[in-house]
């Protein structure tokens, strides 16, 4: 149980040596490694914190930008919608104007065609009627139609009422006594003389009667004194036919227009639905 001095000193020395050895081999090394690790972790945490801050900043700026873009987008959208509406209205208006214009143009061309047709019809019918009448007259009564026409015309001249006569006379006096007799056919000399005589009877004067032929008269004859006219034409008989044809035309056109309008209304209704 006694304390051996040598052993005591030896143990103290042993312990001091052990402290030094462990300080070198264990504590310094392990503490250094642990400190380094702590530093590394602290550094990483700091880096992570900085990264997080940067990311948050980035995120904030991203959201700001996003919000800005949203606002801009809605502005652009509403503007584009407005422009589209405006453009739609303009295009509708232009289309309507186009349609109106082409309709008008079509109507005008139709009218012109109608007129041309009626004119042509009148001419051909007149010619046909004239020719038929001439042949019928020739076959039935051995009469010359042209001669009959002139005679009927002269008869009409002779049977003019006072008012007409006075008008003709006034016109004759203010027209340097020129009288034109226009016919579709060449009047035979004998009838020409009769005509001159009849004119002179009408005007009580020396009149300069000039004869000429014109295509458009439809087998008729006409006396022109300045702006006054006395005429006999087959066309007078065709008036009713022309009128009936014109009526038929008008009816057909109005039917087509009604149909067109109906189609158009359907189309515009559909377009309205689509726009809505």
């Amino acid at each position: 149980m006694a304390i051996d001095l040598f052993t005591l000193i030896a143990q103290i020395v042993n312990f001091i040596i052990l402290v030094l050895l462990l300080r070198h081999f264990l504590f310094r090394r392990i503490v250094r490694v642990m400190d380094e690790r702590e530093e590394a972790i602290a550094r990483r945490v700091e880096e992570a914190r900085r990264s997080k801050e940067a990311a948050e900043k980035e995120e904030r700026s991203y959201w700001d930008k996003r919000r800005e873009l949203d606002v801009k987008e809605s502005e652009l959208m509403s503007r584009a919608q407005g422009e589209a509406e405006e453009m739609k209205a303009t295009l509708f208006r232009e289309a309507r104007e186009d349609v109106d214009r082409s309709q008008k143009h079509w109507r005008e061309s139709l009218q012109a065609q109608k007129e041309a047709f009626l004119r042509d019809l009148r001419l051909r019918t007149g010619e046909q009627v004239f020719e038929t009448a001439r042949r019928v007259l020739k076959d039935l009564a051995d009469e010359d139609l042209e001669r009959r026409v002139v005679e009927v015309f002269l008869k009409r001249l002779g049977s003019l009422d006072g008012e007409k006569k006075r008008e003709i006379k006034e016109a004759f006096e203010s027209s340097k006594r020129d009288v034109n007799v226009v016919s579709r056919f060449e009047i035979p000399e004998k009838l020409k003389q009769k005509t001159v005589k009849a004119v002179k009877d009408l005007t009580d004067d020396e009149a300069r009667v000039r004869f000429r032929t014109a295509e458009g008269l439809l087998g008729g004859i006409e006396l022109e004194v300045r702006d006054r006219k006395i005429a006999w034409e087959i066309e007078d008989y065709l008036g009713d036919l022309t009128e009936k044809m014109a009526e038929a035309f008008e009816q057909r056109i109005s039917e087509e227009e009604a149909e067109e309008k109906r189609v158009e209304e359907g189309a515009s209704g559909q377009a309205g639905d689509e726009a809505g």
Binding site: Q11, L18, L21, L22, F25, L26, I30, V33, A40
Partner: peptide, 22 residues
């Protein structure tokens, strides 16, 4: 005591030979 010392030093040396930080 020497045995314990030797063991302690040997173990410390063996383990701290290849310490890794990360």
């Amino acid at each position: 005591t020497w045995l314990v010392m030797g063991l302690l030093v040997l173990l410390s040396w063996l383990i701290t030979r290849n310490l890794s930080v990360e």
